[in-house]
Design a protein around this nucleic acid. Structure first.
Lengths: 254, 254
DNA sequence: GAGTGGTCTAGACCACAAT
DNA sequence: TTGTGGTCTAGACCACTCG
């Protein structure tokens, strides 16, 4: 981390977490921070912009930036790896590939993965556990150009995502997700020990590399009551605000 | 829109949408764009950074920026207003308040809205329609400081969100959302004409003003098969990439 | 009116990618 | 090696908030 604006951002995050600047308090002015860190105002801005994007700060032109939260807002990255999410939350994730099959792509998969009609893809049926409990059934489909790397992984690989990154250097760039509710089918019911028709959370997604090539799509179904997808977001723009907004009660910096 | 970097961003978005720069093609270098628009390089960067955040561009140090998609990725703002979402998609939303009641806040609501224990809050039970079809039951709770503005709105107000913005100048700043699957209870079953236990999508959220004061929380439940929440996201960082990534096939700018 | 953040400039140097 | 994006500077002016 040789980049100054990252160091400054990290430093500010730490101070906010440590309640040096508690929620409701103001950050020092840009000019003052610039002097303190011995950098130009622009560099401080780069750091502060990052914290804003994380939902940590409220900033309005003309007013001092105020702290909103102590903890950084969780971001959507968790939608991209169950194993990573589990690790972050101190839980242990497991995974077992039940079936592995190469077939021609369906029309839907052709569109999602941007492969030629009928081109061979790799289907994976996988049961996942959290702290030893079966919790989720995955129906994953990999594009042919990553299929061999996936097929070579052990059946009980905990994170296919990381395995694929290590084996083939393929990493997540963008994801497109759809979340619905759906009744359990026979397969899920028997694998997870629930009744048919039970309300399951269905999470479908397509993930692409940073340069826009989709390589995996999946249909994940969670056991009822076990999973809640959470999202923090910030309003995209200052939108339709009218009049003057009341301020949060000020708190002096510690 | 007097700000140059916004104008430039908008111009680029338009050109990408019009396939002047189709997916896979490269954007001109920063210096060239700066000259073309008659601004400094920094201003161009501000514009381009916005497009990156929208998932429209792939950028890597040293390489030209490449276009990833034609359409701007939809963002999470839709999670904040059903009416707005419907309007954007050319559907007609309706809403009818079935019950409106002031009571003391429960423990859960106290925490979500950050009000004193037992402080009065406004409960709203509301049935929503899409193109005339009942689709969703909302259980909304408003903090007392916005309750009067909400209670004064007509029972068939289509957008309480916009109504609240107009009446009280209260607008969305941040949202925290949780999405689950849950079986239909008697109330939803009868209102939506479905069977008890049917798999419903449950969307709970707390919304705060830009300065961090929560003012509304809700528990929305969607009729089975009617709603899918979609999310586009980009990887937060250049994470654990190994080796050189293969490039997307180049396409000449039109 | 003083202070603060938002925008913009004109230049510089470096790190990385492509050739 | 050359071109490109990433970082940084030192200064300027404007728009907005707040006392």
């Amino acid at each position: 981390m040789v980049v100054q604006h990252r160091q400054i951002a990290e430093d500010l995050r730490r101070q906010i977490a440590a309640s040096v600047y508690p929620p409701g308090s103001c950050l020092p002015p840009e000019t003052e921070m610039a002097a303190r860190y011995g950098v130009s105002r622009g560099t401080v801005r780069q750091a502060v912009v990052a914290l804003q994007a994380e939902g940590l700060l409220d900033t309005r032109q003309g007013a001092r930036r105020t702290v909103l939260r102590t903890a950084p807002a969780q971001n959507l990255a968790r939608l991209q790896s169950f194993a990573q999410w589990a690790a972050e939350n101190g839980r242990s994730a497991g995974g077992l590939i039940l079936r592995l099959r190469r077939t021609g792509a369906t029309a839907e998969q052709t569109a999602a993965l941007q492969v030629a009609a009928g081109e061979e893809v790799l289907h994976v049926l996988r049961l996942r556990t959290l702290d030893g409990e079966p919790i989720l059934v995955e129906r994953i489909v990999y594009a042919s150009w990553v299929a061999d790397a996936v097929a070579g992984l052990p059946r009980d690989t905990v994170s296919l995502t990381e395995g694929l990154a290590e084996e083939a250097g393929v990493t997540h760039g963008h994801g497109r997700h759809a979340i619905e509710a759906i009744g359990a089918r026979v397969l899920e019911a028997s694998l997870l020990g629930i009744r048919r028709g039970s309300p399951m959370l269905r999470h479908r997604y397509v993930i692409s590399t940073a340069d826009g090539r989709p390589f995996v799509t999946s249909d994940d179904r969670y056991k009822p009551g076990t999973m809640s997808i959470t999202v923090d977001n910030a309003a995209p723009a200052r939108s339709i605000a009218r009049g003057t907004r009341p301020r949060a009660k000020p708190v002096p910096p510690a």
